[in-house]
Design a protein around this nucleic acid. Structure first.
Lengths: 335, 335
DNA sequence: CTGAAAGCGCTTACAG
DNA sequence: CTGAAAGCGCTTACAG
């Protein structure tokens, strides 16, 4: 493989001059620049990113720290990963995957090994142990999630509070006074999942404010359980026939259960939901919904992280992306 | 951040001696080793991976080249990515995500920038343009997929030919003589998808050999289309009520359609399928099936890639993982 | 505008 | 068994 020295020799200039055209940080006369570019093309030269990283102490790489929770349901994860990689490349950064099951350890090693210039933490929890090594070191990072205490770290997320308001209002405005609140497994709330908790809190608050009675129905993990729980709930005469859903697994399974029971939306049932756009892409989900938007989240997070790297002392910010309500006439007017 | 020099000074030895205990490639007396380890702990030192990479010309990083095809359906992609990252870390390698839409260009840049020691190509096609820059440069790589001509590159995949044999045999052994062959969209075969093509070819061959008539039903992309196509096919009296399915989107949608039509498996319909284990994890899929196994594929691919890096001159191999038939009594005996 | 020199943080023959 | 020196391929003040 050609090095910068080979290019310099071929072009008859010094290595520093080649470096100047490579980085573009110095003016070089058009003639010498042309000679150098010709040499680069001839030798098929390309800069050794590792050597450049050592010299500049910038790796031009982000680490994406993936965390799993068994109670979750994430056909959308791949979409997020690709969205982050694309958004990063757009700004000249590569993306390294950090999947260690001990997330705090992964963070510590990534920082210590200086393999990345910044970290993107997916799926951040309240009290997430991954925050500690970051806030202690002041290492550039962005949280995807919205913890109560972000420990001085920038955070980006869909605004799940606003999403809850929108969906509750949508039901109330259509005249509904009672709804089943189909929720994530209880473990997910207990684990500190910020999207679960934020949505729940506001849904309950807003429902109380607007006079909507909410009957919570937590749905346990696993396809069989989801199906059984939904079926039982829909057959329970004590439960309302209006559904506010925040559980991707339940939304995905709902049509199966409706089929089992011979029920139709919006005829027999009114449904609103908050789920990932990926779900809607894969299944026929014709429910009025707020969809999460991986591309927007990824682009914003990468933008925030880049800014953080440029101006490390700037105060930490929380950026919540306003969700969009996608109306699909799955809600019957109810007077 | 502490450097190897700081550690050497703290321990009162030379940098080379510190390096010796870091790499473990030389014997160091227990006493000095202990002093050095104490210094490392005290300074919270950790080796700069980039500098090491420059000195050793080994980055200890693999690039995973992701390719998308609109006709595909991949809730399993994230599972694959995590499986690769885990398998790589097991052997001391990190994983970089390469998602550029121009895959050949991504490969070329990864090789030229020496950011990775090896490449893992996901979802390889017959005539895949990403193979060219690899076979030209002889860069270490492993294909996940099974192209007709792997261009001298190692390849790892589930044995889709064996999977087809198993499923056809399973139907024939149960006495079936006619089956609907629910397939991927035609574009996927046209694009050169090796898993689609390999399965199709063997299914047709084996079916002919064993006297099973196969009625091909290609299913187009998109949830609405999948549902409509399946519904039409299941209502068509000319088509058999036995299904051999190779299309994850169709398998996932099948229960919806059965609900629509009030059909039951195995009562009204016999079903066998080849789909990703991820699908079965998310949905109630109680069909006799061959499931793909991301963990096994990832571990084998990483193993093959490591071996390739160690012995570059070894002849290229093709490793096909034997699938496992998971019997679920979705097939009625048919005498 | 261009070049010689030092340095980024490691590893690895090579002496001792 | 340990250390001094050179080198990996870049960039960046600093002279000229």
């Amino acid at each position: 493989m050609a090095t910068i020295g080979d290019v310099a020799r071929e072009a008859g200039v010094s290595r520093s001059t080649v470096s100047s055209v490579l980085t573009g940080r110095k003016f070089v006369t058009p003639e010498t620049r042309a000679r150098i570019e010709a040499a680069i093309a001839k030798l098929d030269y390309s800069v050794n990113t590792g050597a450049r990283a050592l010299a500049t102490s910038r790796t031009m790489t982000f680490g994406v720290v993936v965390r799993f929770h068994e109670a979750e349901f994430s056909p959308a994860l791949a979409t997020y990963l690709v969205a982050f990689s694309d958004a990063a490349r757009e700004r000249g950064y590569a993306v390294m995957l950090l999947t260690e099951s001990d997330g705090a350890e992964a963070v510590r090693r990534a920082i210590a090994g200086r393999q990345v210039d910044g970290l993107i933490l997916l799926n951040v929890l309240d009290g997430d142990p991954r925050l500690e090594p970051i806030s202690r070191s002041g290492f550039p990072a962005v949280l995807v999630g919205n913890p109560e205490d972000p420990r001085g770290i920038d955070a980006v997320d869909l605004d799940f509070t606003a999403a809850a308001t929108m969906l509750v209002d949508h039901l109330v405005d259509a005249g509904h006074r009672d709804a089943m609140f189909v929720q994530w497994p209880e473990e997910l709330y207990a684990s500190g999942s910020t999207y679960a908790t934020r949505f729940e809190r506001e849904a309950l608050r807003r429902a109380a404010e607007r006079g909507l009675r909410l009957a919570p129905v937590p749905v346990p993990v696993g396809p069989e359980q989801v199906r059984a729980t939904l079926r039982a709930a829909l057959q329970d005469p004590a439960l309302p026939k209006t559904l506010l859903i925040h559980n991707d697994a339940a939304v995905a399974m709902l049509p199966f259960v409706l089929g089992d029971l011979g029920l139709e939306v919006p005829g027999d049932l009114s449904v609103v939901s908050l789920h990932s756009a990926e779900l809607a892409r894969l299944y026929v989900l014709s429910y009025t919904a707020v969809e999460s938007d991986p591309t927007a989240v990824a682009e914003t997070a990468v933008e925030v992280l880049c800014r953080r790297i440029e101006t490390p002392q700037a105060p930490a910010r929380r950026r919540l992306l306003m969700p969009r309500l996608d109306r699909k006439s799955s809600v019957d007017p109810n007077e």
